[in-house]
Every structure is written in structure tokens, then in C-alpha cells.
């Protein structure tokens, strides 16, 4: 087969997927961009995310929340992932199974699980009631959202950390030890740098997913002002389509950019989900 014929064939094989992508993603996103500029504020709708206090605050809150979730997830997963990869003990497989199972639980369900844990009839409420006499309920706030995002971030990050820990060259650690490095020094100087690409890429997924997550907030309370909830209320309650379009485009741009940046930094393929 000549190169030309093969190229034609490959183009034909790619065409359907590309067609769907163009017709149902590229084109609609283009329409979205146009719609964003066609509101009463025109093109200034895009600037509103910074000029309008409500949008600005929700953006800041969302970024802070996502960053906090990302850091907490990475810290927990680095410890647990390394531990599970490095040690063999009875029940290890079960533990790994448990910790990776919630992968791709939808946000609504995670929201409900947070209610189970920290809601009015939740476990934490019951425990604190029994212990201190006052009921601790924080599901329907930023704290609840934090717990929820942590919940769906952990499985994904832990998988990446374990896969990366498996590929670490143990001889580097042995070399460091032979030079007199303590466990702490080995962890700081050898293991963590080795895990860095995995942490970067999975951290980016975690951040991007948290920025765009909608289901959890939707289940917990409609008055938590994270950006996706603001977009949702603009669209449905205020019928402010232009503003919703502008805000969602900016949000999409942020998550896409974070992922693209991490991908360049980590050199591996990264995609968000959820």
C-alpha cells in the first residue's frame, strides 16, 4: 500500500470521531463564546468575573477550596500510596481495593455520602453528640464540600502515586542510604523527587476536577458559592445566559490550562474526570 492510500485510510478512520467532536463540541463552544458576548454587557461579560464582587469572591473561594483539596489529597496519597506499594501485609489487597473503588463515583453520590458522614443524621454528628453533648454538623458548607472533594480525589491520586512508586529505582535509595542518608533524608531527596511528576499530574487532575465539580455542591446545598453553582444559578434562576456562558468558558479555560500546564511539566498524559 502506498503512503498516500494509507494516509487516506487513516484519515477515514479518524474522521467520524473528529466529526462528532467538531459538531458537538467545537461548534457549540464557539456558540457559547458568541452567546457570552451578546448579553447586555457585551464583551465585558468576560471581565465580570473580576469586576463583579460576587463572581470574584466565588472564583477565589473555588480556587482556594480546590487548592486546599489538592494539597490535602496529595499529602494523604503520597503517604498511603507509598506505604501500600512498599509493604506487604495481609489485607493489603483489600485496602487497595477499598481505596481505589470510589473512582468515578458521581458527585451527587459523593455529596450524599458526605451527608451520611457529616449531615444532620450523620456519623460524626452522632459521635460528637455522644462524646461532647453537642452535635457537629458541617456537611452543608464549604467544609462538607472539602470532605466531598477529598473523597473523590483520593482514589484517582492514590492509583497514580502507587503506579509511580512502583517504577522508582530502589537502587537510588540504597545508594543514598549507603552514603549515610536517614529515612527522612532519603524520602526528601530521593523518593519525593521521583514521585514529583506523578504528584504534579494527579494534582492537576485533582485541582481541575474540583474547580469544575458540580454534583456534590448541588446535593449538599444550593447556597455554597462555588463557581459551578454560580453558573448554574445564573443560567436557571436568573436566566442570565450570557453571564453563565462567559463564566463557564472562563472556568473551562482555567481547568484546561491547569491540565495542559501539568502535562507539559510532567510529560505524561493527564485528563480530568468526574
Amino acid at each position: 500500500m502506498s503512503d498516500m492510500r494509507e494516509n487516506t485510510l487513516l484519515a477515514l478512520l479518524l474522521a467520524p470521531a473528529l466529526l462528532v467532536f467538531v459538531a458537538f463540541f467545537l461548534l457549540p463552544i464557539g456558540r457559547l463564546a458568541l452567546a457570552a458576548g451578546s448579553g447586555p454587557d457585551g464583551i465585558m461579560a468576560y471581565a465580570a468575573i473580576l469586576t463583579d464582587a460576587r463572581y470574584r469572591e466565588s472564583l477565589i473561594a473555588t480556587v482556594l477550596l480546590s487548592a486546599g483539596v489538592t494539597l490535602a489529597t496529595l499529602a494523604l496519597c503520597a503517604v498511603c500510596g507509598l506505604f501500600l506499594e512498599r509493604n506487604r501485609f495481609p489485607g493489603r489487597a483489600v485496602l487497595i481495593g477499598i481505596m481505589t473503588l470510589p473512582l468515578s463515583f458521581p458527585g451527587v453520590v459523593v455529596g450524599f455520602l458526605v451527608i451520611m458522614l457529616a449531615g444532620r443524621q450523620g456519623l460524626i454528628g452522632d459521635l460528637t453528640q455522644a462524646l461532647t453533648g453537642s452535635k457537629l454538623v458541617f456537611a452543608y458548607s464549604m467544609a462538607g464540600l472539602f470532605i466531598g472533594y477529598l473523597y473523590f480525589s483520593i482514589p484517582r491520586v492514590i492509583l497514580t502515586v502507587m503506579a509511580s512508586a512502583e517504577k522508582l529505582d530502589r537502587r537510588l535509595e540504597e545508594a543514598a542510604r549507603s552514603l549515610g542518608a536517614s529515612t527522612f533524608a532519603v524520602t526528601r531527596d530521593v523518593i519525593l523527587p521521583g514521585l514529583l511528576p506523578a504528584l504534579l499530574s494527579s494534582g492537576a487532575i485533582c485541582f481541575a476536577t474540583s474547580m469544575g465539580a458540580f454534583g456534590t455542591a448541588f446535593t449538599l446545598a444550593t447556597n455554597i458559592d462555588v463557581l459551578p453553582m454560580v453558573i448554574y444559578t445564573e443560567f436557571t434562576l436568573h436566566a442570565n445566559i450570557a453571564m453563565a456562558a462567559a463564566l463557564s468558558l472562563i472556568l473551562g479555560l482555567i481547568t484546561w490550562a491547569v491540565l495542559a500546564l501539568a502535562r507539559t511539566a510532567a510529560g505524561s498524559s493527564v485528563a480530568a474526570a468526574g
Partner: peptide
């Protein structure tokens, strides 16, 4: 590049994609 492009719908929040689809179709 094509591969990167096809992955974008995952990187963009579902909410944005849904709005775009609603506005277009």
C-alpha cells in the same frame, strides 16, 4: 494535536459543555 483536542471535553467541566450544547442545539 488531534489526540489532545479529542481529550478537551474531559478537561472542560461538564457544566460548560452542557451549556454549549444547549445554546447550540
Amino acid at each position: 494535536l488531534i489526540e489532545e483536542m479529542l481529550v478537551v471535553p474531559v478537561a472542560v467541566p461538564g457544566l460548560a459543555t452542557a451549556l454549549a450544547l444547549l445554546i447550540a442545539y
